[in-house]
Structures are given as C-alpha cells and as structure tokens.
C-alpha cells in the first residue's frame, strides 16, 4: 500500500469531510459530484459537448465579462469606503484615493476594469453572432443579453460622473442633453413644442426626462447623488438579476450552443 501523504490526512479529517462531500475529482462519480454539489460550480452542467469547452469556439468572453463584473463589484465596494458623493468632497476624495490610501491602484483597476468589461461584452456579442447562437431556442436569451449590454454601458456611463472632474460633468452634460431631445418626453425634442395649450407648456424643463435623470434642471449635486445611487446600487442589482436569468436560460436552452 502506498504511503499516506499530508494531503490524505487532511482529506480524512472531519472538517474537510464536512465541507467537501466527495473524494478528489479523478473518477466519473466524483467529477459529477464536485460540479453538482458546489453552489458556484453548479452553474455548469456536469458534462458538455467538446466544442463548448474549446476557447476557439467560446472565446471565454461571456465568462470573462461575469468575472470582471465580480471584480468591479469588489473594487467598487472598496472604493466606497473612501468616497463621498457630494460636489464638495467627491473630487478631493478621488485624489485622496491615490495619495492617502495604500495600494493606490484600486481606482485604476476599477476604471480599466470597467473599460475591459465593455470590451468583453461587445466581443461576447460578436462571438454569439458569428456562431449563430442566438437562433432558436436561444432567441429570448439574446434579448436578455442585449439588455445586459445596454446596462453595462449605463453602469460605465454613470460611473463616469463620480470623480466630478471636467471630463465627468461634460460627458454627463452631453448625455443628459440627449435625454432632453427625446421626442415628446424631453423639452427640447420634437413634439414638445406641439404639447402646449395656450401658455401652458406640458413638457418643460421642470418635468421632462432630463429633469428626472439629473434631479434638477442643471448638472449639479442632485445629479451626482442620483448617478451614484444608480451606479452603486440600482443598476448592479438589475444586472445581477438579469445575469441570473441569462445563466439560467443558457442552461435551460441547452447549454453552450453547438450544431443541432
């Protein structure tokens, strides 16, 4: 009989056995058990077609998008410890993040990670199109994916305002003025001029979509707070739910696409 190593002793302790209910994943039974029994790994099926594990087919872009989303959640949480979303403090807190805090690349990782997530999500869509993976039965999941793509862009865009620097407010000024030009819903868009009864203007700068976005008529502190809440809580929540739907449907629609 072979000599027992340290690893084998650890595997036989009660603590180990209480956490991992199966042996090392070297045989069929345990390989199935490790994927099915682990809450994180059970996103995957136990077995899948060989074409679906090849990097040349999947490019791993969807998986990377999810991973970067998690990385952004963690770094974003850490950034929140040092950031106050007010016009008075925001800019100084961003400088402090660089100067007064150890590991001064947290903001860099968050920012470049945001860019990287936009890139991976686009390339994921590109791959899914190229392999025709949106075709039945995956039509609905493609739609969920498009919504997630938009939400990724919105997450990135709302994050842009938070440093409260020149780049931030002018990007938001341009963005919110596009909202102003929304037909019928923005006071500077087509249709708004027609929605007028005598002197009473139905769509004005006090009740259009731009006002709702900014919490006021100008890009100012209410806008900063709104974008902060949208960026840190609201959109990530929606994205989280939709990611769950997206992954669930990948499984239910037959896993990673493959020739019929």
């Amino acid at each position: 009989m072979a000599k027992k190593g340290v690893a084998d002793y650890i595997r036989e302790t009660q603590v180990w056995k209480s956490i991992f209910r199966h042996g090392p994943p070297t045989d069929a039974r345990n390989r199935a058990a490790v994927v099915a029994g682990n809450v994180f790994l059970h996103l995957h099926p136990i077995k899948l077609k060989r074409s679906g594990v090849q990097l040349g087919y999947t490019w791993c872009m969807g998986g990377l998008t999810f991973f970067i989303f998690l990385a952004l959640t963690v770094t974003g949480l850490l950034l929140m410890f040092y950031y106050r979303p007010t016009a008075e403090y925001a800019y100084n807190d961003i400088i402090a993040l660089k100067e007064h805090v150890p590991l001064g690349i947290m903001r860099e990782i968050h920012r470049w990670g945001a860019h990287a997530m936009v890139i991976t999500v686009w390339l994921h869509m590109f791959r899914v199109f190229m392999t025709g993976s949106y075709k039945p039965p995956r039509e609905f999941n493609w739609g969920v994916g498009v919504v997630l793509l938009i939400l990724t862009l919105l997450l990135s865009f709302t994050g842009y305002l938070l440093p409260w620097d020149q780049l931030a407010i002018w990007a938001i000024a341009v963005g919110s003025n596009m909202a102003k030009a929304t037909p019928f819903l923005g006071h500077g868009g087509p249709g708004a001029a027609l929605a007028q009864i005598g002197d009473f203007v139905m769509v004005s700068d006090k009740n259009d979509v731009r006002f709702q976005l900014l919490g006021g008529r100008f890009v100012g502190e209410p806008a900063l707070l709104r974008f902060y809440i949208l960026h840190c809580v609201f959109i990530p929540l929606v994205v989280g739910v939709l990611i769950a739907v997206h992954f669930w449907r990948v499984r239910k629609d037959g896993g990673i696409s493959a020739p019929l």
Partner: peptide
C-alpha cells in the same frame, strides 16, 4: 417621487 418639489437652482 423622482421629481422633487423643490430644487436649488443657481
């Protein structure tokens, strides 16, 4: 609710 009654304009 997202439309406050009072805003502080310049």
């Amino acid at each position: 609710y997202s439309y406050p009654n009072v805003t502080f304009d310049p």
